[in-house]
């Protein structure tokens, strides 16, 4: 089973289309909506975790591209500024999916981008403003 977390930027003329329904019905993909926002007169942003057959997944992406929907991998949208992070660990306690881990001896905080669901909790909580989110 293939699985990927992606960010879709949906043009304003597409916002009222049942995209997720199509992904599920036509491509037999399991979906988990992690975040959905509509910015008036601009676009919709949808963060999805998709699971299914790799062929179907690729076909689904082609469908989305054909509809002029911008697709980005979620992992690139949440980043940590290494110059600002002091490895305190406040993010560890707030993250709902355990995307931060404490390295045992060094007590360094490791950010596991692949686990991140871009909820933004760490961005708000980090006192050093080391976490950034760009959806």
């Amino acid at each position: 089973m293939y699985s990927e977390k992606i960010v879709l930027h949906i043009p304003s003329n597409m916002v009222d289309k049942p995209i997720v329904y199509k992904l599920s019905r036509d491509f037999d993909l399991e979906f988990n909506i992690l975040k959905a926002t509509v910015i008036p007169n601009e676009e919709g942003v949808l963060v999805l975790e998709l699971k299914g057959d790799k062929n179907n997944y690729d076909k689904a992406l082609r469908y989305l591209e054909a509809e002029k929907i911008k697709i980005k991998s979620l992992s690139k949208d949440v980043t940590r500024d290494e110059n600002k992070c002091v490895h305190c660990g406040l993010c560890v306690g707030i993250c709902p999916v355990s995307a931060f881990e404490v390295e045992l001896d060094s007590r360094k905080i490791i950010f596991k981008q692949d686990k991140c669901i871009a909820c933004g909790m760490c961005v708000n909580v980090c006192p050093y403003k080391a976490m950034e989110i760009k959806l």
Binding site: H87, C88, G89, L90, G93, I94, S106, R107, K108, P127
Partner: peptide, 13 residues
């Protein structure tokens, strides 16, 4: 209960 540090042990070291 999950614990988190506010003080940085990494920097303290």
């Amino acid at each position: 209960v999950i614990t988190a540090g506010i003080s940085s042990y990494y920097k303290a070291k």
